[in-house]
Every structure is written in C-alpha cells, then in structure tokens.
Computed example of a mutant assay.
Amino acid sequence: MTGQTAPLDELVRRTAEELAARRRGAVAVGAIRGEESATHGADPRALFEIGSISKTFTALTLARLAGRGEVALGQPMSELLPSGAAVPQLDGRQIELEHLACHTSGLPRLPKGLMPRGLFSADPYAGCTEEILLNGLARTRLRSVPGSRFRYSNLGAGLLGLALARHAGLDYDELVQREICRPLGLEDTRVVLDGERAGRLAPGHSRFGRPRPGWRLAALAGAGGLHSTVSDLLRLAKATFGDGPREVTDAIALTRATGHPISKISTAHPGWLSMERAQDKGGPRLLFHNGGTGGYRSLLAVIPERRAAVVALSADARSVDAPGMRLLSDLAGRSG
C-alpha cells in the first residue's frame, strides 16, 4: 500500500510512533490530505515552543500590514525604530522590512554580544531587551549588502517583530493575536501562556532526554517566541490552501509571491522557505519552516496545490524534520 493510498490516520500514527520511540518528551503529529485530517501523539491541544516557526507569523503580520498600506515591504527598518536608533548600512543600502523577512539584511545570525556567554545559558535570549538590542545594533557591521545575499538571521527576524510592534503601538504577542491568530481562530498560539494554557505546555527536554526550561525571547520574540499546538498549526496550514479569511489568505499569497533565490531549487520568502522537489520538476513547490529551542523541535510543511500538510511538534530537542518530510512526501506523491 503506497503513501497516497494508505489511510491518513495510519500514516500519521506511524510517524508519531517513530518520533516517540526515540525521545523522552511528548510528540504530536498532524496532517492534512485533501479534505481529511488526522492527529496522533499528545493531545492536539498540548502546547509546545515552536521556535522559528514564529518567523512565519511575524512575516504574515508584515504582509497584513503591507496589504493595508500601513507599511511597505521596501520600507527602511529605521523608520519604524525609535528616533535616533543607529541602523547599519553597507554601500549606501538601507535594511528594508522585506530584507529582514527574507534573511537578506546582511545582519549576523545572533545579536551583538550574545556569544559566547548567552548560548551556554539555559535561557539564552532572556536578556535581549529592546535597549540592549538597539545598542548592539548600533555596533553591528553588516556581512553583506542588504538585499543581495541570503544569510539566516534570528536577529533580523526579531528586529522585524520589534519594529512592527512599535509601529502598531502593541507588544509583539498582541500584534500577532490581532493580525493572524484571531482571524484564523488560533486560540492557543501566543508568546505568554496564562494559567490554563501553562498547564497544557509539554515539558521540554534536551536531545539527551534531560529536562530543559522554557525560553523567553524578550524583544526577540518575533524570531522564535511563540507557543502553539498541532490544532492551531493545521489551521494555518489550511490557510495556505486558500481556506480562511481573505485578509490572511491574501497575506499568505503576498509572502509566496515575494522571494530571494537561494539556489536553483530553493527560495527564501518572507517567513517561509520553498523548494522544488525532485519528483515535482517544474511543479508545485514545498513550502516550509522548522524551529528549535532548548527543549523543543517543530516542523510546518505544506504543498498547497496538493492540499497536503504536515505539522510535527516535539518536547525534545532532536529534529523532527526527516520523519515529517517523509510523511508529507507520502501524502503528496508525485506529479502527473
């Protein structure tokens, strides 16, 4: 029985069991094939840190604001930061919002001064306040001319979230709630968990099975500070198919239409990476983002034209990418 003909529930169960067999922390797997959906593993409402999938929410928030004309993709970041904030340039080129969203800003991966001390901490980003970030930004040298080269940057994505929140007069959490979560009905996707939600958070573990505390990303929340559930992320996946409120599906379309080539087969979009699959030459592209924090790993992968999607969440720091991508391949099959 091939992946395309096997029952969806069976395929998802197998993937959840494969992941659970190798780790101590909870796992939750969900998938969509056509009009069907299935989840296995932990309760679909169990919460996990989703790490860099937060960047997808940050970029979609940018796209929503741009769609209303409140900001522009090509707007300099400096215009949304406090007056007097020093923003590095190179060859006279300013960092634009689109550059932050596509990782072409030229900014380094991490904030100035975080290494080496910060990443050896159990909660490495907790001290990244707005003041510290902007002071560090003033002393940062760009690695490439803005807009010219893909260089993955947590700093850039975090600054995008910070800049958009300042522009809106809200904190990052509330801005994402307003622009993405409430329109899509994502009840549990947020930075700060209240008492009831905190009780549903799956405890994180290192890749060796040791308990790990949660991460607080402070002013860098736009890079990786959100928590979510399989249920919520499947709703976001459906929105990439065009199923959802027009304001969100239009924002998704804008992120897909905007991009910077990385290689012959891959492109960086605001909040996503897309790839041409070997079995789909010239056909539908895989759209995805993954994430990782001290005690969690996550994957959101979709092929919208096939109405195929996979969400894999783990409260353990070992990657979920390979099993998740195999499941998506089983669901989507080949072109023709």
Rank of each mutant, 00 (worst) to 15 (best):
V12N: 04
A16R: 05
L19R: 14
A21I: 03
R22N: 01
R22C: 00
G25Y: 00
A28M: 08
A31E: 11
I32S: 01
K55C: 00
A59D: 00
A59K: 10
L60C: 05
L62T: 12
A63G: 14
R64D: 10
A86M: 02
V87D: 02
L90W: 12
Q94P: 00
E96K: 15
L97I: 04
H99R: 14
G106F: 03
L114S: 05
G118H: 05
F120P: 01
S121L: 13
Y125E: 08
A126G: 02
L133I: 12
L142C: 06
P146T: 07
G147Q: 12
F150C: 01
G156W: 07
G156P: 00
A157R: 02
G158M: 10
G158F: 11
L162F: 14
L164T: 12
A165Q: 07
R166Q: 11
Y172T: 08
D173V: 07
L175M: 11
E187N: 05
E187M: 02
P203H: 10
P211W: 13
A223D: 03
G224T: 07
G225F: 14
S228P: 13
L233E: 09
A237L: 03
K238M: 13
T240P: 01
D250P: 09
A257K: 02
P261R: 15
T267F: 10
P270G: 03
L273R: 15
G283A: 08
L286R: 03
L287V: 15
L287I: 15
N290I: 12
G295I: 12
S298W: 07
V302K: 04
P304Q: 08
R306H: 11
R306Y: 04
L313W: 08
S314C: 09
A315C: 04
A317V: 06
P323M: 10
L331P: 03
